[in-house]
Amino acid sequence: MALYEHIFIARPDMSPAQMESLIEDVKTLIEEKGGKTGKTEYWGLRNLAYRINKSRKGHYGLIDIDASADVIDELDRLQRLSEDIIRHMTVRVDEHVETPSAILTKKDDRRGRRERT
């Protein structure tokens, strides 16, 4: 089994609760197919670099995966068919990092600066 990071962008008109549910559905799918999931992160509603399907924003999610290529192929196929997912990308990594991602760390830094002033 190999290690992967899976990032996806969902429609902007979804609620954060729906996004959390979508992340749980993806985790369930991976575990049913024989893979394992590590940390999951919801990055919130963020601006896109360019318009996608007339949308300027999207909900971002990240999942660390330990699975075979067959599981990743099935996940890719289902997310291409899903109307809720705007874009997705799966990248193979050498090891999973247990600390929060750079996106979440950046948010925490901003909050700390606001509190100091």
Score class of each variant (00 low, 15 high):
residue 1 M to H: 02
residue 1 M to P: 01
residue 1 M to W: 02
residue 2 A to V: 12
residue 6 H to F: 10
residue 8 F to T: 06
residue 10 A to V: 02
residue 10 A to P: 00
residue 12 P to Q: 08
residue 13 D to M: 06
residue 14 M to W: 04
residue 16 P to E: 15
residue 16 P to W: 04
residue 16 P to D: 10
residue 18 Q to R: 04
residue 19 M to K: 13
residue 21 S to N: 13
residue 23 I to W: 01
residue 23 I to N: 05
residue 24 E to K: 12
residue 24 E to Y: 00
residue 26 V to R: 03
residue 27 K to H: 03
residue 28 T to V: 04
residue 28 T to H: 01
residue 29 L to P: 08
residue 30 I to M: 00
residue 30 I to D: 00
residue 31 E to R: 04
residue 32 E to W: 05
residue 33 K to T: 10
residue 35 G to W: 00
residue 35 G to P: 03
residue 38 G to F: 11
residue 38 G to Q: 12
residue 39 K to P: 14
residue 39 K to A: 12
residue 42 Y to G: 09
residue 43 W to P: 13
residue 44 G to N: 10
residue 44 G to H: 09
residue 44 G to E: 12
residue 45 L to V: 08
residue 45 L to H: 05
residue 46 R to F: 05
residue 46 R to E: 15
residue 48 L to K: 06
residue 49 A to L: 04
residue 51 R to Q: 10
residue 52 I to M: 04
residue 53 N to E: 11
residue 53 N to Y: 14
residue 54 K to P: 13
residue 56 R to E: 11
residue 57 K to A: 09
residue 57 K to L: 07
residue 58 G to Y: 01
residue 60 Y to P: 09
residue 63 I to D: 02
residue 65 I to H: 01
residue 66 D to Q: 07
residue 68 S to N: 10
residue 68 S to A: 13
residue 69 A to Q: 13
residue 71 V to C: 01
residue 71 V to M: 02
residue 74 E to G: 06
residue 74 E to P: 07
residue 76 D to F: 06
residue 77 R to K: 05
residue 78 L to N: 15
residue 80 R to T: 04
residue 84 D to Y: 04
residue 86 I to W: 05
residue 87 R to D: 01
residue 88 H to N: 12
residue 88 H to V: 11
residue 88 H to S: 08
residue 90 T to L: 14
residue 91 V to H: 02
residue 92 R to T: 11
residue 93 V to I: 07
residue 93 V to L: 04
residue 94 D to L: 09
residue 95 E to K: 15
residue 96 H to C: 07
residue 97 V to R: 13
residue 97 V to T: 15
residue 99 T to M: 10
residue 99 T to C: 10
residue 100 P to N: 11
residue 103 I to N: 02
residue 104 L to R: 08
residue 106 K to T: 11
residue 107 K to T: 11
residue 108 D to I: 13
residue 109 D to L: 10
residue 110 R to Q: 06
residue 110 R to H: 15
residue 112 G to Y: 08
residue 112 G to F: 09
residue 113 R to F: 12
residue 114 R to T: 06
residue 116 R to A: 15
residue 116 R to W: 15
residue 117 T to P: 10
